[in-house]
Design a protein around this nucleic acid. Structure first.
Lengths: 147, 147
DNA sequence: CTTCATGTAACTTACAATGTTACGAAATCG
DNA sequence: CGATTTCGTAACATTGTAAGTTACATGAAG
């Protein structure tokens, strides 16, 4: 199954923006992400609607972060993206007549709901600042090795 | 994203088989599941390889369960199906050069791995017998209402 | 008014699960 | 034996969604 990498993409983009002075264009971000500028605009558009980033047109335009890195959690980004489905597994019929299928669905739904709750909890505990700090550690480690 | 409903399907099929005397044909199971007989053969084939069911050809042939309902867990069925991907979200590049992307991937992978561990743990705690018992409860409840 | 950059619609591509057709192989019945 | 039943499997079609692409409009800065 093909999976949704939008959360990963916006995180990648936001951290590059955090490391960069001034706004970044869709073209520059597309280069960083290895994708197409229109995909960047489309995806970042969700974050603009949520007030997490702002965009400006024309010369010296582009995207910039409009929030405190400590205040933006993965949970907020996930929500901003429209709370896409987390799981690749699931059931066929949403409200089946068959009692057997009802029993199966109930068991699977309970289990998946618990896992989703765990994921959302974890997402709400991780901020952009945490990821930026992890990036800084990795960056410092590479500089030590190269010295 | 379109999701994988094979685990749900085989559970549905196995419970019908458990309620039914003698082997069930792919056609009969396809009727129960609202799908195509070939899909049933394809999917149940995984369970045959794992020794959970057996199939016989010709007259009075079909599928039958070859294991104790108390001994078969959702985890085993998931494994028998080839451990398909659990999540619909993920990252784009598996081993990126970009340190920013490495930091993003590390955080997401850690979180998803924890959720997957929880799911697999829960799956290993649920047996076919549990689901059959839940079905029986639902069946009895319906009979009470109809009386 | 030219250039740069976003905004967005429309279309194409990619990919995996599912659905379908076709035919072969084996078991049973008459 | 020959007909029927049922699984086994390959090959192909359908479907759904994210991602990629093209095209053109809109607005801001020089």
């Amino acid at each position: 199954m093909k999976h949704d990498s939008r959360l990963s993409s916006v995180l990648h983009a936001l951290l590059h923006m955090a490391e960069h002075d001034g706004p970044m264009t869709s073209d520059a971000l597309a280069q960083c992400l290895g994708t197409h500028p229109v995909v960047v605009r489309r995806t970042m558009g969700y974050l603009r609607e949520a007030g997490i980033v702002a965009s400006e047109r024309g010369h010296a335009g582009g995207w910039r972060i409009q929030a405190d890195l400590h205040a933006v959690t993965l949970r907020q980004l996930h929500d901003a993206l429209g709370e896409p489905a987390m799981f690749a597994i699931g059931h066929r019929d949403e409200a089946p007549q068959c009692l057997v299928e009802q029993a199966v669905n109930a068991a699977l739904e309970r289990t998946l709901a618990d896992a989703e709750a765990l994921l959302l909890q974890r997402f709400s505990e991780i901020t952009l600042a945490d990821l930026a700090a992890d990036f800084a550690r990795r960056h410092a480690a590479v500089r030590r090795i190269r010295r």
